[in-house]
Amino acid sequence: METLGIWIAALLTLAIGSLLWRQNPLYRLAEHILVGFTAGHLVVINFFNVKNFGIEPMVKGGMWINIVPIIIGLLFYFRFSRRYAWLTRIPLAYFFGLSGAIGITGALDASIRQQIIATVKPLYEPEIIWGFIPHLNINNIIILVGTITTLAYFFMTRPHKGITGGMAYVGRFFIMVTLGARFGAVVMSRLSLLIDRLYFILHDCLKIL
C-alpha cells in the first residue's frame, strides 16, 4: 500500500512538473486533485473543530455556554439571505473585537516595546579597537540609522522634502537591501523544494540514490 502511495505521489509530482514544458491535461488533472483534496481536508478539519470544541463539551460535559459561540458562528450563514445579511455583522464584530484584543495585548510587549528597547544600543564602546573608527560599534549604528530612516520612508503625512526627504531616500536603500535579502532567502527555499522532489523520485521511488 505504501509503495502504491509513493508511486501516486511521484506521478503527481511529474504531472505538476510537466507545466515547465507547457500547459497540458496531466498538469490540470493533478491541479484539480490538489484543489479537491485541500478542500476536503479543510472540511474535515473544521467539522472536527466544531465537534470537539463546541458540541462534545456541551453534550458530554454540560458546558451549555458553548451554545453562545455556536449561535454566533451560525449567523454567518445569513449572508445567503438578502433580507437578513446584516446579521453577519454580529459575528464579524465579535471576531474583530476578540482577535484585536488578544493580538494587541500580546504584541504591545513582544513586538513593540521589546523591539524599541532592542534599537537602543551603545554606539560608543571603549573595548572596540578595530574598524574604521575605533570605539564605534558599527553594527549598532547601522541598526539605529536603518530603523530611523526606514520609519521616515513610511512617514506619509508630510511630503518627502528637506530632512524628511533625505532620510526617506536613505531609508529606501535599507528597504532595497531587505528586499534583496528576502528574495535570496525565497530562492533558497524554492530550491529546497526542487531538491526534495528530485530526492523523493530518486530515493523513495526509483531507489537509485
Binding site: 528597547i117 532592542a118 528576502r182 532567502a185 533558497m188 529546497s192
Partner: peptide, 14 residues
C-alpha cells in the same frame, strides 16, 4: 524556512 528568517531576525537581535 529560509524565507521566514528575515522577519524573525529582529527578535533574535533583541
Amino acid at each position: 524556512t529560509a524565507s521566514a528568517v528575515p522577519p524573525i531576525m529582529p527578535y533574535v537581535e533583541s
